[in-house]
Design a protein around this nucleic acid. Structure first.
Length: 405
RNA sequence: GGGCAGGUACCGAAGCGGUCAACCGGGGCAGACUGUAAAUCUGCUGGGCUACGCCCUACGGAGGUUCGAAUCCUUCCCUGCCCA
């Protein structure tokens, strides 16, 4: 039924940062094989940000591997915890979501996660199921199992504490709430990003405190965003969404710094380890050209989510636009409402949402970034005749066809 | 409850009566170049106005002093530290 322990461990180890404790995991797998019973793998999902990106995908792919090995995936949608507000991030208090909103977001999360996960052996649970039922007594009981000092061990808590950035009590409770999830579903393994290590380990302790078998934890690296420095996140706008179009995906991968190529090959394109190593070597000794390596990585990422053909097409399009400075295949069009046939270029840019304000439009024009039908606009008040279709270009990659409605 | 230090644009951080739409850094955007939406260099980075000038809104909130405030005073809110 199940692959051998070694086979399983090889796959499980690939790309992981920490597996704690590893020998315990080996034992769990042995038992699983002996009893022919799948392990329960937990992954918590935060439904406050409904757009999944390649950063989330790293751990989802790991989950998929467990599924492929025959184990059972449980996706916990943190609808309850999202209602309280996520503590990660600084002093900003997140807007509280209603239960309804979290459900909608949770649904959207699920749809996107399904791009990667298999539908077999997948269970979805909402943590309000058990967390919302807890009484204050239950909370006291839970919080008595852990100490302030233990909670302050968490890196970001201790840093914030030291520097004097406020920490609200409910934020301290967050790891405990998440740990409750593990106790509730009796997970064997919990997956997460490396920043989750602390929370995952709390899960172990709380499971023990509630008389359950403690879970093992597995952390995956946090993929850097397209800037190559900060971790990928929506708020930093350095992310590649799972639902990005092939063209966007390709372009965004091409925008990563060269030193991120191998990292992306491994964790964004999910290329196998040997291949990544060979590219690494090639780049180091100069036998591989960074641009070509990056193009290859970009193609692979697009292929992973849109198919191989899409990868090739995206490459062709990229060459056309950026190397040959030609026009993209398809350009969106927009009808503009206006009284007369002529409209000032600044107004046109604002109306077509290519600039947020006329000031900004002016800056773009002054900077030489605006052209109409291929001709650079030099003057802010230049009139544009929109009785027939015009091609607007702003910057290197914003194209829009406009015509009077 | 008491004492102290703070709250400035997307973030960090100067400014402490006029020359402040606010130094500087990061980020973002645009340009040049190129091997790419890499790297490097340059410019821009509140809003309105046919506009290299004028006007409006902005420095936690509300009042006040002043010809004039982000800068001084009062009060309120928020945060951190120390003491209880």
């Amino acid at each position: 039924m199940f692959p051998s322990v070694n086979e399983q461990m090889d796959l499980i180890r690939s790309g992981a940062i920490d597996i704690l404790p590893e020998d315990e995991l080996v034992k769990k797998i042995e038992v699983s094989i002996k009893k022919n019973k799948p392990m329960t793998i937990k992954l918590g999902a935060d439904p406050s940000r409904p757009d999944l990106h390649l950063g989330h995908a790293v751990v989802l792919h790991k989950m998929r591997q467990f599924q492929d090995l025959g184990h059972k995936a449980i996706l916990i949608i943190g609808d309850f915890t999202a209602m309280i507000g996520d503590p990660t991030g600084k002093s900003k208090t997140r807007p509280q979501l209603t239960l309804e909103e979290t459900r909608i977001n949770g649904q959207s999360y699920l749809e996107q996660a399904n791009i990667i996960l298999s539908n077999d052996r997948l269970e979805v649970r909402y943590n309000s199921e058990w967390l919302s039922k807890m009484t204050f007594n239950d909370v006291i009981l839970l919080t008595s199992k852990y100490t302030v000092a233990q909670l302050l061990e968490r890196d970001d808590f201790s840093k914030r504490f030291k520097v004097g950035v406020p920490i609200s009590v409910h934020e301290l409770l967050y790891p405990l709430a998440q740990a409750m999830d593990s106790a509730a579903i009796e997970s064997d393994v919990e997956l997460g990003g490396s920043d989750q290590k602390f929370n995952l380990l709390v899960g172990r302790e709380i499971q023990k405190a509630y008389g359950k078998e403690p879970q093992c934890i597995l952390t995956m690296p946090l993929l850097e965003g397209t800037d190559g420095v900060e971790k990928m996140s929506k708020s930093l706008d350095n992310y590649i969404a799972l639902t990005d179009t092939p063209r966007e995906m390709f372009g965004k991968v091409m925008s990563i710094p060269d030193n991120m190529i191998c990292r992306y090959l491994q964790y964004a394109a999910m290329a196998d380890t040997d291949f990544v190593k060979s590219v690494e070597k090639g780049l180091a000794d100069g036998s591989a050209h960074p641009r070509n390596a990056k193009v290859d990585a970009a193609k692979r990422v697009v292929a992973l989510y849109h198919g191989e053909q899409a990868g090739d097409d995206a490459f062709a399009e990229f060459e056309r636009i950026f190397k040959n400075k030609e026009l993209p295949d398809e350009i969106e069009s927009m009808s503009i409402e206006h009284d007369s046939n002529e409209i000032g270029i600044m107004d046109l840019l604002v109306k077509s949402n290519l600039a947020p304000s006329k000031k900004e439009a002016k800056r773009l024009i002054d900077g030489g970034g605006v052209s109409v039908d291929g001709e650079k606009i030099e003057e802010g008040f230049a009139p544009v005749d929109i009785s027939s279709e015009r091609l607007l270009k702003v910057g290197k990659r914003k194209f829009l066809k406009v015509i009077k409605l």
